[in-house]
Simulated scan of single mutants.
Amino acid sequence: MPIYRIAIGNPGEASNPDAIRAALAEFFSMIIFVFAGQGSGMAFSKLNDNGTMPSTGVIAASLAHAFGLIVAVAVGANISGGHVNPAVTFGAFIAGHITLLRAILYWIGQLFGSVVACFLIQYATGGMAVSAFALSSGVSSWNALVFEIVMTFGLVYTVYATAVDPKKGNLGIIAPIAIGLIVGANILAGGPFDGASMNPAVTFGPAVVSWTWTHHWVYWLGPFIGAALAAIIYDHIFIGDDEYSHQPLPTDY
């Protein structure tokens, strides 16, 4: 993939009103998503009164994350592109669809939104513990890394196919639904093993609130690798140079 596609951006971009609004959109979208996703796990634990999450809990978490992400992507789409995920933003940067400086603004908004959402859900539940992502018994950090790479690859590939590809046509209308569904499906597949993050911000918020950082690097490295692979492969093979432009993810879906 040609290196000229990667753009650093203009320093003035950090104070550009459009860029700031886009970062704020990511902040609020992340609050919506994390509050619903993290809250679903805490609610299920409350109902079961034992802090565990049996198979029905995984289904509940899958649905909550899918529905929450559909809404979070949709409400942010016309302002920021509805990334709602630092890995998606990283993939967009690697493929040249967003500048580094704009990506940094997005990352700040996404991470801060996740932390705020976790503090809000902790307060709203009367001080219930916010659990950080963790590996299940028998799952090594390298096992989890592969899970995160593969699952995030599927997520970002879906983002490119339904939202970024200029040939998507009317398919862009269902982009938020497709993105939410692939996350829900991946949680069913990987949730029992490593929590199925696919999103460094989703992992970061609970880690900050609970101050638990065990294996935290897995939830950054895996999604970033998966996102970069998906972005490079889809952009290079299916979009190509003719359709290329240095723009944020499309906001017309």
Rank of each mutant, 00 (worst) to 15 (best):
F112W: 08
A161V: 08
F112N: 06
F193S: 12
L145T: 09
L111P: 00
A22N: 11
S210D: 01
A231D: 04
A74L: 15
L145H: 06
K167G: 02
W213C: 01
P176T: 11
I98S: 13
S80F: 06
L145A: 05
T52F: 00
G57K: 02
S40Y: 11
I32L: 15
E26V: 02
I104W: 07
S62Y: 10
M128F: 09
S62W: 12
Y123L: 15
I182L: 11
L181H: 13
Q38N: 11
R21L: 10
N85V: 09
V115S: 10
G195E: 09
V116I: 15
Q110D: 07
H246K: 14
A66T: 13
D49Y: 04
G190C: 08
A92M: 09
N50H: 00
A132L: 06
P11M: 15
Q110N: 08
A201H: 08
A134R: 13
W107C: 07
M151N: 03
S80A: 02
L229D: 11
G172Q: 09
F153G: 01
V159Y: 10
Y160K: 06
A185S: 13
L105P: 05
G127M: 00
Y157G: 01
F93C: 04
V208S: 02
V88H: 07
Y244G: 05
L171G: 14
L111S: 13
F33V: 11
G172A: 07
Y160T: 11
E148I: 03
L69K: 11
P176N: 11
A196N: 02
A66P: 10
G154Q: 03
D165A: 09
L105V: 07
Q110T: 08
P2D: 12
I173S: 01
V218K: 06
W211Q: 14
P206H: 08
D194R: 00
H65E: 12
T52K: 12
S245T: 10
I104G: 09
I59A: 13
P206G: 03
M30I: 12
P11C: 13
P54F: 02
E26K: 15
F33D: 10
G109R: 01
G154E: 02
V218A: 02
P86H: 05
A77P: 02
I121S: 04
N48T: 15
F119N: 09
H83S: 13
N199D: 03
S114P: 12
M151Q: 11
H83E: 05
W107P: 01
A22H: 13
W107A: 09
N170M: 03
M1G: 09
G205P: 10
G81P: 05
H236F: 14
T158A: 04
V130S: 14
Y219C: 06
Q122Y: 08
A7R: 15
A230E: 01
G172V: 08
G169Y: 07
A227V: 01
F33P: 11
A7I: 06
S55P: 00
